[in-house]
Each structure stands twice: as C-alpha cells, then as structure tokens.
Write a protein that binds this DNA or RNA. Structure first.
Lengths: 210, 210
DNA sequence: CCTACCGATCGGTAGG
DNA sequence: CCTACCGATCGGTAGG
C-alpha cells in the first residue's frame, strides 16, 4: 500500500524493514504487543532503539503491518477457492485454506487475534472491514448450502460463527512443528464441521494447490 | 464526582476491594490489562492512585483475582453436573453450564481469555492447572461417550478441543443483553456439537437449576 | 484515604 | 545507523 518514498538519504532496503516486521511478529506473538518494547525489538535485529525509526514510523505501524499481512493471507486463501464448486466443496476448501495459512503463518495469526484491538482507531477500522469480508465468504457459502438443501442449519449466521470459532481458536493450541499436519487437521475438522451443519459425510479434499 | 465521606480509616472493607476488582473487570475487559493504568482504575472507584494500595497489593494481584473468579465459576458449573448422567446428557449440561457462566460473567471471562497470559509465572501456573482440570471434564465425558458408542470421534482429545473452541470463542461476539438467551444458544450449539461428534440428535435439556 | 514523591521505562526525536 | 536526550507515564511507596 503505502510505499512512501522515505527519501534519498536512506537506502532503507525493505529487506531491513521486513526483518524488523518479522522479528516483531515473533516477539509480539510470544509476549504480546504491549509487553514488547521497541528496545526489545531493536535488540532482536541488532540495532539501537532509536535506529528503528529510520525504517518504520511508529509501533502502531509495525503492528498494522503484521495484522495486515495476516489478513492478506487469509483473504487470498479464501479468494483462491473456485466459485464454481458446490457449496459443500467450497466450504471444505475454505476450511483447508484457513488451516494451511494458520500452520504457515501462526505468528502473524496469533498477533492478529491477540493484538488487533490495540491498533489505532483508523487502522483498526480497516482491519475490521477485511475481517467482515472474510467471514462473509463462510456465511455466504453456508447460506448457499442451506438453500440447496445440503446443509441443515437453524441460522446460517450462527453456523458461520460456529465454524470460524473452531478455525480461529487453533492459534491457541496448534503446533505447526508437531505431528498433526494442517491437511490432516483439516480433514478431521471437516468431518466434525460437516456433521455440525448436517452436511454430507464423505467429502474428498483433493490435496491440490492452495 | 462525590468526595464520599472520608470516614474512619478502614483497615479494609472487602466491600471496597470487591468494588475495585469489579471495576477492574470492566476496565480490563474493555481496554485490556496493559492499557488500563492503576490511575484509570482508581478514578473508576473515586480514589486517588496511591490509595488503591490500601486495598490491594499489586496490579498483578487484581488480575489474578479476576481470572480466579472466572475459573471458579466455570469449574463450579462443571462440578455441578451429576456424574450419574449418561455421557451425552453430561456433555449437554457441560455446554449449557459453560454458556450460562459466559452470559452471566462475560467480563470476567473476557479478561480470563485475553489477559491470563500476563499473570506472574507463579499465578499463571495456578490458573493453567485449573484450566487443565476444566478441560478434563470435557475430554473425559467425550471419551466415555466414545467408549459407550454414543459418540463417534477419531480423537477424543481433538474433539474436546473442538468443543471448547466453539464455547470459548463466544466471549468474542456474544452479547448477554441481546435477544439470544444463553439457553437458546446452548440448545443450538448442542445440536451442532452433537452433530460434530456423531452423537444422538434430540437431547432435551431440562431448563433446571445451575 | 490523600499528597507528594520515587526510580524505571516507555515511544519517539534531534542532530550528526 | 548511533548517541543522547525528550516529556509522559507507569506501578508502587512514604508518611501522615
């Protein structure tokens, strides 16, 4: 978005900036946004505290960068699900995509869920809109499935919340380095979630592209 | 802004202490533990900043008090489920109890989930044990149901996490003052969760005591 | 319960 | 990218 030219004086390889954001993702996800100081962050990238500010403009901006990237990943995964698929297959792919992103970017996701409320109001609003957009993918798919008679739910809105609860909570316990692969988890969660929605029982997920 | 009678210097009415903890529950749940200062808390109970410390000893202690009360409520609800019930009914009652506590004590629950990680290590450990104890109620019940052939799950452990995901996430969106009552929510969640576990379809929850 | 104060630390800036 | 520094604010204490 804002690749504002920081001026000619600093070379500011966005390499360095990326390094800072990545370290921040790690530190914030481990210790929380407010308990990580800018000096902690500087130390993690071998800089003095003040030197951070030739690469970033504020702590809030760093948080936004992390949360934004997480939102990007989730939205891209949802957008990659072919609209021609049936609602049941679409939902299965949404679930699989969500859990793959969660496994690949668990630190971004953790900061997203834990600290996005501490963004400045303007930036928080931007994220709120994208989160709504993401949830709409699930709600619309469930609604379509309900109308087609493949899902049987009392309230598609509540059902969407229910599905997203299971998916979002994974950041609290899932270990990407553990023995449970994201696709294996997706398979088990699909089974349970389809049961919850009164949907079809044996969907085969092609182990395809993202 | 009443300068309430400075009265006799009290040793510590636990009334006052309760008032402080309750206000802290409200403030922490709205703004987060680290973004609420002790001066904010003092103002909310019409005290000067330093005066708080005749009733409490530290900010960490206040947080522990809130998180502890939340744990108390959840554990009491689980303990009140009769052990003689069948696994399916037991699980239904666990779900209902959880959602009733959530509705009644949403501020305590919010602070619990959002800020318990910021407790001092010793206090965090105490809470971790109680959380494990609570989760065991769910896991054991699901395991018993699976062995009895009433639930059909691949992994009781994962199924328990799944169930608790849906329940715990409610603090993020449920409005106790909205039109959806906790028992109505419990009824819908039971239907979906039993579907997820391949369990029986029509359980009637008696609208009984706690 | 208040006034006054403590040292520590915070995010961020100036100037080179 | 560093050194040196800013004002603000933090949780907590002393002494009455």
């Amino acid at each position: 978005m804002s690749r504002s030219a920081t001026g000619p004086q600093t070379i500011d390889s966005s390499d360095r900036r990326d390094e800072i954001v990545e370290a921040a993702g790690r530190l914030f996800s481990e210790s929380g946004y407010h308990t990580t100081s800018m000096r902690d962050l500087a130390r993690a990238v071998n800089l003095q505290g003040g030197s951070l500010y030739s690469h970033i403009t504020s702590k809030d901006e760093v948080l936004f960068e992390i949360v934004s990237r997480a939102a990007d990943e989730f939205l891209a995964a949802a957008a990659s699900v072919p609209a021609e698929l049936s609602p049941a297959f679409r939902l299965a792919r949404l679930i699989q995509g969500h859990l793959r992103v969660m496994a690949r970017e668990i630190r971004l996701a953790t900061v997203f869920f834990q600290d996005w409320r501490y963004l400045s109001p303007e930036r928080r609003e931007i994220i709120a809109l994208r989160r709504d957009e993401y949830e709409a993918h699930f709600r619309d798919t469930i609604e379509a499935g309900a109308e087609a008679g493949v899902f049987h739910v009392e309230s598609p809105r509540l059902a969407a919340i229910f599905v997203l609860s299971a998916l979002n909570w994974t950041y609290q316990w899932y270990d990407p380095n553990g023995s449970l692969s994201p696709d294996e988890l997706a398979s088990q969660y699909c089974r349970m979630l389809f049961g919850a929605l009164g949907g079809p029982n044996q969907l085969k997920l092609e182990a395809g592209n993202d």
